[in-house]
Design a binder for these strands. Structure first.
Lengths: 323, 323
DNA sequence: AAGCCGGGTGAACAAACGTGCAAGGAGGGG
DNA sequence: CCCCTCCTTGCACGTTTGTTCACCCGGCTT
C-alpha cells in the first residue's frame, strides 16, 4: 500500500508540474515531456488526468454585465439565478440531457464545499450528471439521498447507490443512503418508519442540508421520467395523479401547475422531503432539459422550489416566451 | 460608439458561448463553428480571446496534502506561503524571469479583487509580469505606484506608467502614479515634498493598501536590477551601500543581510514605502527568479517583508539547502 | 520457476488546432 | 461618390495534440 501511495502521489506531483507548465507557462507538451524526461504521449495522458481529477479547474466567468439575455430575463421574471446551457435547436432530447448534465457536472464544484451537506435525488438526469462530475476534494462533507429508490421488483439500492456513490467519490464526501422504496404501499407504513430512529436521523440531516440537487419528473409528457417508466407506480396511481391535476414531481413529491401540493393522495406515500423542508435549503439546484418538462418547470417555479436553474437554451427560450 | 459597443458585446457573448461549448461540453472547435455558423478558425480565435481576456479562468489547485516538498519546507522554515515555479535547471536567467513572471501574471487575479488597493513597484520583474497579466474585471479598485521612477535623464514616467497602466487596464482599476524621481538628490527635498498634500494623499493610500507586489533589487550581483543599471545611482552611492553592508532593496529602500535598515544613508533619499508601512500590508507578494538574488531574498525574509513568495524551482532549492 | 495479468510506456497515425495570408466589407475622410 | 484604411473572415498549411497498438515490467498465481 505504501508503494501504491508513493507512486500515486508521484503521479499527482507530475500531473501538477505538467499542468503548471502547460496552463501557466504555455509550454507545448513536447517541451514538457523533455523537462519531465518522458514521452509526449505520457504528458498528454498526465494532463488529461489532471483535468479529469480536478487538479486543473477551468471556470467561465461572465463579466457580470453580460450574462445572456435569457439568463437576465429569467432572473427578472422568476427571481432565481439561471444558467442557460447553449444547445443547438435541432438537438435531440437525449443530446440535450447529456449536454446539460455535462455542464452541470463541471460547475457543481462551485456550489459544494467542505463541511456541507448536499441532498441528491436520483433519476436519469442525476445519473447523467453523476457520470461526469469532476472531482473536488472536500472534507467533513455529506451527501444524502433525498428519497427512496425501491419499487415492487428491486430495492433500487444499486441504481441509486451507484449515482450517490459517484458524487460521494468525486467530492470525498460521506454518502448516506435512504434504504426505503420510492413509494410506500400504505401511508401508515411510511409514518411508522419515519419514527424509526435510523430514518429520523436521515430526515434531520435533510432538514439542515446546504444544497439540494434534483431534476423534475413530468408524469404526463411523452418522455416519462425514470419514476414513471420504472414500475414505481400503477394504473390507479396515474389516474389519481391525473384527477389531482398534477404536473410534475420533485423527488417523489407531486405538485400542481400552481405549485400547490395539498390533498394529493400519493404524497402521503412518497418518500422525498416535504416542500417546506426543501424551501428551507439555502441553495436548490434544479436541472431541466427538454421542452417536454416545461409545465413541470413552471409548477416548480410557482412552488418556489428552485434557487438556481440549469436549463438548455431552447427550453429557456420557451419558458420566457410564454407568459 | 454604440455600434462598436454592440459588436464588442456580441463578440464577448460569442466567446462565452464558444468557451462554454469547448470547456464545459467538450465539443471540438469544428462542432462549435457549425453551431455558431462561422469557421473553425474564427472559433479558435474566439477561444484565444476568451482565455486572453479572462473570460475563461484556468486554475491549478493542489490537493492540499500534496504541495511540492519545497513549498512545504519553505513554509516551515520561513512561515510564508511559497509558490514554486517549475523551471528546468539549465534555463538561463532570462528564461527563469520570463517563466516566473508568466506564472505570476496568470495567478495574480486570485489575490486582487474589487475595492482593493494594490501597490506595485517597477523594474524588470514587474515589467515582465505586466506584459502577461490576465485581465479580471474589478470595480472600485486602485493601483498605486510604490516608489518614484525618475532619474537624472528622464522622469521615468513613461516606463513606470506603461507597467502600471497594463495592470490597471487588466483589472479595470484606477491607477495612481507617483511622479517623483526614484531617489532624491537631497533628503530635504524629499521631506518637503512628502508634506505636499498631493503626495501625502498617495502616501496615505499606500498605508492602507491590501496587496503589495514587488521584486527584489540586488545591488552587487552580476545581473544588476533595473535600478542599478538605469543611471539612478552614482559611484559614491554604491560605495556608501557597500559600506553599509546592503544586500538588496525593495522599491528603493535598502536593507542588510539581517533585515535591518537603520542608518543606511540612501534610504533618506529613496521614495519607496517605509518597511513599517509595508509590513502592515496584509499580503505582500514577492517575485524572485535566479540564484543571484539569493542574498537579497534572505535579507527580505529576515526583514519579514514577504507573505507570499513566487520563486523558480532551483532558487527555491538553493534557499532551503543553505541554513 | 514459469506463466499470466494489469497497468503503464513510447512510436505511429489520425484528428484537432493555431496562424500567415489574401480577400472582402464596413467606416471615415477626402 | 470614391477611395483608403482597418478590421474581420475563411482557407491552407504546418504544428500540436489525442489515441491506438504493441510492448515491457513488476506482482501474483499455479
Amino acid at each position: 500500500m505504501s508503494l501504491v501511495d508513493e507512486s500515486q502521489s508521484d503521479r499527482v506531483r507530475d500531473a501538477l508540474t505538467a499542468a503548471h507548465l502547460y496552463y501557466m507557462q504555455d509550454l507545448t507538451m513536447d517541451a514538457i515531456a523533455h523537462e519531465l524526461h518522458t514521452s509526449r504521449s505520457s504528458v498528454s495522458r498526465l494532463l488529461s488526468h489532471a483535468r479529469a481529477t480536478g487538479l486543473v479547474d477551468i471556470q467561465i466567468r461572465s463579466p457580470l454585465d453580460a450574462p445572456s439575455r435569457l439568463e437576465l430575463l429569467i432572473q427578472e421574471r422568476f427571481h432565481i439565478t439561471a444558467h442557460v446551457v447553449p444547445v443547438p435547436d435541432h438537438a435531440t432530447d437525449v443530446d440535450r440531457l447529456e449536454r446539460v448534465a455535462l455542464s452541470v457536472a463541471r460547475i457543481l464544484g462551485q456550489f459544494f464545499d467542505s463541511n456541507m451537506v448536499m441532498g441528491i435525488a436520483w433519476g436519469s438526469t442525476m445519473n447523467a450528471i453523476s457520470r461526469h462530475v469532476t472531482p473536488k476534494q472536500t472534507h467533513g462533507s455529506q451527501i444524502i439521498q433525498l428519497n427512496g429508490a425501491g419499487n415492487m421488483r428491486t430495492t433500487g439500492l444499486s441504481y441509486a447507490s451507484e449515482i450517490l456513490g459517484r458524487f460521494g467519490y468525486a467530492f470525498g464526501a460521506h454518502v448516506h443512503q435512504f434504504p426505503v422504496p420510492a413509494f410506500f404501499d400504505s401511508p401508515a407504513t411510511k409514518q411508522a418508519l419515519w419514527r424509526e430512529r435510523s430514518v429520523s436521523r436521515l430526515l434531520e440531516m435533510q432538514a439542515r442540508m446546504d444544497v439540494a440537487l434534483f431534476g423534475l419528473g413530468s408524469p404526463f409528457s411523452e418522455v416519462p421520467s425514470h419514476v414513471y417508466a420504472g414500475g414505481y407506480l400503477e394504473e390507479p396511481d396515474y389516474a389519481s395523479l391525473s384527477r389531482s391535476g398534477v404536473v410534475g414531481d420533485v423527488a417523489t413529491i407531486f405538485y400542481r401547475a400552481d405549485g400547490s401540493t395539498d390533498g394529493i393522495p400519493l404524497n402521503t406515500r412518497g418518500t422525498g422531503p416535504d416542500f417546506d423542508v426543501l424551501r428551507r435549503t439555502p441553495r436548490r439546484l434544479c436541472v431541466v432539459s427538454g421542452a417536454a418538462k416545461l409545465p413541470s418547470l413552471r409548477g416548480a417555479l410557482k412552488a418556489e422550489l428552485i434557487t438556481d436553474l440549469f436549463v438548455d437554451e431552447s427550453t429557456a427560450r420557451a419558458l420566457v416566451a410564454s407568459a
